[in-house]
Design a protein around this nucleic acid. Structure first.
Lengths: 330, 330
DNA sequence: CTGAAAGCGCTAACAT
DNA sequence: ATGTTAGCGCTTTCAG
């Protein structure tokens, strides 16, 4: 049996109340008493039970992080930032991967509510707006990261995906490309939709007709993009450049291109998005838009903790800026 | 205020005990009563408080995962596997990054004990054997993953690093390389030590003298390996091949080589270890040893849960096999 | 400065 | 089949 506050109290000949006081650094305890208790705590190697504490305080000092997939290289940095910041502020984080599966997203939220987590950082798919609506009704602290759902109940920490895509495509156009195709991300996400829009907007702006054949829906994965690229290569009228919705997709595009013995960017230019570590390691190095992933994670917990600690915190999105990282592939 | 078991009891005109019974699917409850309670639970959207439950049951259904760094691409797959398996079995996982920092490792364990986590999956640095010894004294369920500490109190889920490195170096030798250098990982880890040993063993076995100048300690990072490679290139008597302790290091080696305008493998062969996703994306594609990362994660939770659910579970390490993945860089 | 008592939300003997 | 009671380990009034 682990040692409890009672054991300490008994050993020190004081009440549990007094022990609790020193545990929580309350003022009204005699110096000698405090010293004695501290000593005993140390000797007996006492470690307060946070579950019990959580029950009375109605606070677990734990937050939930719901993301599609930690093994997608976009997320580890975000998760790292969230955990770092949380750790620094005395919070723990429970991770949950959903694979964008609506049912698992729901399950995650149920579970986390049941565990009385103090707040949630979520990256949900479209179609689950009700989850957030219900959470909001209970006034549960939540912040959305990366992608948003349509309704707007909670602050979103992200980038301006439309603008970011626009900038990239604009860059490609200025480089002289006209036949630019787009391999999108999973269109069940706002990010993919916005990037697609940005792509279209840039073409329009520069008077380039939008061809449906040049737009293929992928899933933000290497493999889906690989296949998308295959079909693009089969077109009679091939594009000369590809804007892949994320770097992982760009890697898939690279694969397909190498197999077809095509040179990047001479035969086909390729641009990505996100600037994950991989981007600078590809050959040729990938031109992409850098997303401040670490900062997004940090900000998410900063805001979440504000919501947790002061009710009625005003909802304000934080839209960070992206940077065009020019390398060799465009 | 959230709805509690009391509210349900009151609404249903029964005692909380009865509600608790239906919550836990106990048999002795009348069918009608059960139905009524279930209905009310649903109507009131009741969600049992696991903190309270955890306090009485002495079980939190949560495990702790202590690793160096989730943003090191070796770990996400392991973490994914751990979370998947845990999720499947009704457990949650709290993540903690330590950067191999002894003090933070200690802090993580303290925190997790305080949170009454049911068990721990850890990847600790050398120098923290005491942590595990103390944990063992309390009979706390723990399994080590990837790397071990020297004392052997808890089961380890890993690979045979020495053998794996030996195989790789042997392959390089058989390919005709004699001047093979090694850029090690952080030698405060058993994995780095074992890989170094395996490297030496292979050289010995094939009668190739071990040159200290050909062994440089890195940190398993891209940057440390990049620098190590620079110094290797400055040697009067340059090696002709590099065995990098992990793929991330190999990527650093690639960078240094490209900068020096050297061709892989013609001018310098490069081998990695782990087979992270990146390996097949590098150009030339990286020859490496594949580690069953996902399986390691799964097994770790399987064993941990056995320890949790049946005291005195016999300690048995699980050493999985690695595979030589021949690609283009050697 | 210290202690007694109540209670957080739940489960588990032990009745009945 | 259902209720009463105690208690998990802690914090927090409220007294003194």
């Amino acid at each position: 049996m682990r040692v409890t506050i009672k054991d300490i109290a008994k050993e020190a000949n004081v009440s549990v109340t007094t022990v609790s006081r020193v545990l929580n650094n309350k003022p009204d305890v005699g110096d000698d008493t405090r010293a004695k208790i501290l000593k005993i705590i140390d000797e007996m190697n006492y470690n307060p039970n946070s579950v019990a504490r959580g029950l009375v305080m109605q606070k677990t000092h734990t937050i939930g992080l719901i993301i599609p997939d930690i093994s997608n290289p976009f997320f580890p940095q975000i998760v790292r930032a969230v955990e770092d910041k949380a750790q620094k502020l005395g919070y723990s984080v429970i991770l949950f991967n959903t694979d964008n599966h609506l049912e698992r997203e729901r399950k995650a939220v149920e579970l986390f509510k049941s565990k009385q987590l103090d707040g949630l950082i979520v990256s949900l798919s479209l179609g689950n707006e009700k989850i957030l609506k219900d959470l909001k009704a209970e006034n549960y602290p939540v912040v959305q990261i990366d992608r948003s759902v349509l309704d707007h109940h909670y602050p979103l920490i992200s980038i301006d995906n439309k603008k970011s895509a626009y900038q990239m495509v604009q860059y490609m156009i200025k480089k002289g490309y006209k036949k630019i195709a787009h391999i999108s991300g999973d269109l069940n996400t706002t990010t993919a939709r916005d990037r697609l829009e940005g792509y279209k907007k840039a073409l329009k702006k520069y008077g380039i007709p939008i061809k449906n054949k040049y737009i293929i829906e992928g899933e933000y994965t290497q493999n889906s993009a690989y296949q998308a690229m295959q079909s693009l290569l089969n077109l009679k009228n091939r594009p000369k450049a590809i804007f892949a919705a994320n770097d992982l997709s760009a890697a898939g595009v690279y694969k397909a291109l190498f197999e077809a013995d095509l040179k990047i960017p001479e035969d086909m230019a390729v641009a990505g998005h996100d600037d994950i570590n991989l981007a600078s390691l590809l050959k040729p190095e990938l031109t992409t838009m850098r997303q401040p992933k670490y900062e997004m994670g940090e900000r998410a917990v900063t805001i979440l903790l504000k919501m947790i600690n002061q009710q009625n915190f005003e909802i304000k999105d934080q839209i960070l800026t992206t940077d065009l990282i020019i390398r060799e592939s465009v």
